[in-house]
Design a protein around this nucleic acid. Sequence first.
DNA 1: GCTTGAACCTCAAGCGGCCGCAGGGTGTAC
DNA 2: GTACACCCTGCGGCCGCTTGAGGTTCAAGC
Lengths: 142, 142
Amino acid sequence: MLTIGNLAKRTGTKVQTIRYYEQIGLMPEPGRTDGGQRRYREAELDRLSFVRHARQLGFSLEAIRELLDLSDHPGKSCAEADAIARRQLRQVEQRLARLEALRSELTRMVHECSGGQTADCRVLEVLRDHAECLTDHDEIGA
Amino acid sequence: MLTIGNLAKRTGTKVQTIRYYEQIGLMPEPGRTDGGQRRYREAELDRLSFVRHARQLGFSLEAIRELLDLSDHPGKSCAEADAIARRQLRQVEQRLARLEALRSELTRMVHECSGGQTADCRVLEVLRDHAECLTDHDEIGA
DNA sequence: GCTTGAACCTCAAGCGGCCGCAGGGTGTAC
DNA sequence: GTACACCCTGCGGCCGCTTGAGGTTCAAGC
């Protein structure tokens, strides 16, 4: 029987985050001591590990909810889980492309800065110069 | 004299976002018509373009506030702006590294999925298998 | 058995960076 | 003069947590 603090340590999660997951129904309500403190078992450790791992892979909580649901129903087709992963992969690739563009622009800015006064700072100049804008008006991939 | 809607169009910003920037003091309070509608000039268009461009490069609003302040004082040393940009570059590089790791793991997951039932789905298996966790417990770079 | 102090509890609000809606007023073209 | 697109304020919502206040419980040491 794990306390919430131990569960937190073993999964690299904050205590509050675990309670948050319970609140939004991602983690089940655990057993309690007479005094009302939560106590967890291995099954819950596994579930939380699943969630954390998926979060690290960039899945949204909604996607994780779907994945957990699939995982809870082993008879279902794998296609859905696969689709979620593929969707996620596409997103990651888009973000990567975006970030690479950012890196090159930032690198250029930083390297061209001569270190004088702000009046001729290349960093500020690039930001000011509308013509050098990234071409589209997308949101940032961050 | 631009209406807020035109300013929005010319900078690829939502009207509400411009009002939000004004509210948090990133954009100055503009002039108003007798009826109370905002009217903008070129200077404000430039400032907003600067902000949007910096946002596209992933700078936080706080960083942008500093950059704007530097830009408003052309006599100051450029070093600070340079430092902000370098910080941003480091962050971008960290995210890139993180995302690249995610991509390879997701790619592996997707390639290994055999298309059967969820019981033998690699996607879910990888997420379940604690031993395959990314080594650290960092937050995701997203 | 008693005391300490770390860990737990609930509830609520806050963060960044906006977006969207309701319910109304304005500006301009015909 | 009227239609209708646009503007206004204010507030609540989004995600994925985090922080804080104010109080209770548990386990170890004496």
